[in-house]
Design a protein around this nucleic acid. Structure first.
Lengths: 144, 144
DNA sequence: ATTCTTATTGCGAACGATTCGCAACAACTA
DNA sequence: TAGTTGTTGCGAATCGTTCGCAATAAGAAT
């Protein structure tokens, strides 16, 4: 598969090695594009190889983050942090309070925010972290 | 001062008591409107009364949050959570990567986002958490 | 293939932030 | 002023994450 090959090369360029734990973590992240907690990732990884240690999962994630392959985000103060593949595009998160679904939303909204801040306030936005909690369309109609 | 009186009443209405730790935490939050870590709050509180325990600060904050008097937020995955007075108005946070300043920004931007999501996606936004990291106007001109 | 180098692992201990249980204490009530 | 019970300080417990280290294995060289 071309994706795993790409990972191996990216790692080798930095003098890193493609190992079992890293491969498994990478697979899990790619398979479910969703936001995963470390606990969830570990659980998935263990289905392929129960001998992989949690520390290694943390270390793999940290390495991937350093390579800008994944992104750490938190969808709420009470929640632990979650991990997802790093999307190159601007996007934000819609969290439905009812069904718990987390939608990635790509679109011009983030660009609009960036421009608004640049023009209006002279603030050069680099990272825009937008998490919106509310009720999604499906739950709004399904209820009441 | 009317604010402390207000606090006492709010507490009493729930059968809670206005105590030394709660008062001190409340004072600190009001004095510096900024985002404070628990560590900072504890440190400030100790200037008034070093015998106040950290647990009590946590408990006071939790109580205030329950009363919607304060808001817990985090300005980055690596950072611990921070506390601020709950502003009734929509606002968001501009974090300058250079000088570290955190600006609260009130304005129509959050309202625009809310409308964008409602009209475009049928998503009823309730809580909008927007943290923007970048370079503020002052640092942009001061540099280079 | 075999050997060598050293990045990486698993393990368990350490860590920091937050929470908990509990007996002593103090805020409000009558 | 005494009684009721919400709150405190204390220390232990918990949780997620990180660390140190000896053993292991990935990739390069032969």
């Amino acid at each position: 598969m071309s994706k795993e090959k790409g990972l191996a090369e990216l790692l080798r360029d930095r003098g890193n090695r493609l190992t079992e734990p890293r491969l498994r973590v990478w697979e899990v992240l790619n398979r479910s594009g969703d936001h995963l907690t470390v606990e969830e990732i570990v659980s998935e990884v263990h289905k392929a190889d129960p001998s992989i240690n949690t520390s290694s999962v943390y270390r793999s994630l940290a390495l991937f983050a350093d390579l800008d392959l994944v992104r750490e985000s938190s969808l709420g103060v009470d929640e632990g942090s979650r991990w997802e593949l790093a999307h190159p595009d601007d996007h934000f998160h819609l969290v439905c309070r009812i069904c718990g679904t987390v939608d990635h939303h790509e679109g011009d909204l983030v660009g609009q925010i960036r421009e608004h801040l640049a023009v209006g306030h002279g603030f050069a936005a680099e990272e825009i972290d937008l998490v919106v909690t509310g009720v999604c369309a499906r739950c709004a109609t399904g209820e009441a």
